[in-house]
């Protein structure tokens, strides 16, 4: 029973926190931008989440007549499923982890690659020009940044000597990896933003340029799934940052799970802060930044870490 109950509970908590994050983001943005944000429904506007859900579920679920119906429906599911699957390998605490793969890190990279399909298929099946632009941008951007993301975490793998996330966390009992891997951390965060296409790298859905990008034609809960998928992505990337670079559940005094949640929240807030602060680079600038700076930097980091490892052994 236990093996079945835990994942379900984690799933529910994740969905709930992704939904709540929509409210948190708006309130926090409000705070930073000298305005209120949603504060009318329920205490502190907390029930806004419920109101939004009711709205999304009861809205007309419209599939444009010119769209490719099957793929159009499947696309938003992919992103949500992939993001939820990604959490399967996250070690929330020493006791709480759904599965501990030996190559959990590779699983994570595979999952985040697969979610590209969601965006791509959504854009192509919508059969609309703005959606097509969004899909093209998203595909190029996510595939490119996937490369740097993968390369940046290899330093962590070298240091810990394992692909298992649990072992990576345990390897950080002496020293969190963000200190020796500060460069990798920077690259991972940037790639993570690009992967979850959040501002400032929200070019696939840049509303001022291409209206809403790949989800222009989506409505109702299908749009909701993209939305939740995006927030799950934010939480997932934050959880990964914590696991790989900030010692996962480790920390003094407080119980491990609390430490994990605390650290993850800090990075979630950082993601939101970025959205409040930065403008959006141009698409070609983003790509050339990736290939001209990120890639050499990631390779250099990998080389140096490898050399250091060989030298100390």
């Amino acid at each position: 029973m236990h093996e079945l109950v835990t994942p379900v509970i984690i799933l529910l908590i994740l969905l709930l926190s992704a939904a709540t994050l929509t409210w948190v983001e708006r309130r926090i943005l409000g705070l930073w931008q000298d305005r209120y944000g949603p504060n009318r429904v329920g205490p502190f506007g907390l029930l806004q989440v419920v109101a939004d859900m009711i709205k999304l579920f009861t809205k007309e679920d419209w599939i444009p007549p010119f769209a490719d119906k099957v793929i159009f429906v499947i696309a938003p599911m992919i992103v949500m499923i992939m993001m939820l699957l990604g959490f399967a390998i996250i070690p929330f605490s020493p006791q709480l982890q759904i599965v501990d793969f030996d190559n959990g890190l590779l699983f994570f990279l595979a999952i985040s690659s697969l979610s590209v399909y969601s965006v791509m298929l959504a854009g192509f099946s919508s059969n609309s020009k703005y959606a097509l632009f969004g899909a093209l941008r998203a595909t190029a951007q996510m595939i490119s940044y996937e490369v740097f993301m993968g390369l940046s975490v290899m330093g962590v793998v070298i240091l810990s000597g394992s692909f298992s996330l649990r072992e990576i966390v345990e390897a950080q009992s002496e020293q969190w990896f963000f200190i020796p891997q500060i460069v990798a951390l920077g690259i991972f965060i940037i790639a993570g933003i690009a992967e979850s296409h959040r501002a400032p790298f929200d070019l696939p859905e840049a509303e001022h340029e291409i209206v809403a990008g790949f989800h222009t034609e989506y409505s109702s809960m299908k749009f909701g799934m993209f939305f939740i998928g995006e927030y799950l992505g934010v939480i997932l990337i934050s959880a990964m940052i914590v696991t790989l670079f900030f010692g996962g559940w480790q920390g003094p005094f407080l119980p491990p799970i609390l430490w994990f949640l605390l650290k993850t929240s800090v990075f979630v807030l950082f993601f939101i802060l970025l959205r409040a602060a930065t403008p959006r680079p141009r698409y070609d600038q983003l790509m050339s930044f990736g290939w001209k700076y990120m890639l050499p930097l990631a390779l250099l980091n990998l080389l140096l870490t490898g050399a250091y490892r060989l030298w100390t052994q």
Partner: peptide
């Protein structure tokens, strides 16, 4: 202007 370039906050400060 800032908003069209993707910077969201400036306009809120200016609206105040």
């Amino acid at each position: 202007f800032a908003q069209d370039l993707g910077q969201l906050s400036t306009i809120f400060y200016l609206f105040i």
